[in-house]
């Protein structure tokens, strides 16, 4: 069984988690164009390589972020949304 480390609950079997899609910062709710919202809502980039994704620990409904390599399926790290800025610089690992 693959293990994923939940920032709130610690290491758990991957079967306890739900995938939530790619993470992208939300456009400015006041000043963004319709095109920016369409891009945000409907068009994931789906790259081959390191991607930041939403995951949820189902037992606690706790949402967090995971940096995962979509080629090797290696999970580099998991962290809370408020820590997203810390790891933004090395997404291209």
């Amino acid at each position: 069984m693959k293990i994923l480390n939940c920032p709130l609950n610690g290491p758990r079997n991957i079967s306890e988690f739900t995938y939530g899609g790619e993470y992208h910062p939300m456009p400015d709710s006041m000043g963004s164009s319709q095109e920016a919202w369409v891009e945000y809502v409907f068009f994931p980039e789906n790259p081959a390589g390191m991607v930041t994704e939403w995951w949820m620990h189902t037992a606690t409904a706790f949402w967090f972020l995971a940096d995962r390599n979509t080629i090797t399926d290696e999970i580099l790290r998991t962290y809370r949304l408020q820590d997203a800025g810390k790891y933004a610089h090395d997404k291209d690992v």
Partner: peptide
């Protein structure tokens, strides 16, 4: 506390 799966059911 472990909030986890017990017999495939979400359990505290």
């Amino acid at each position: 506390i472990a909030q986890t799966s017990v017999a495939r059911t979400n359990t505290i």
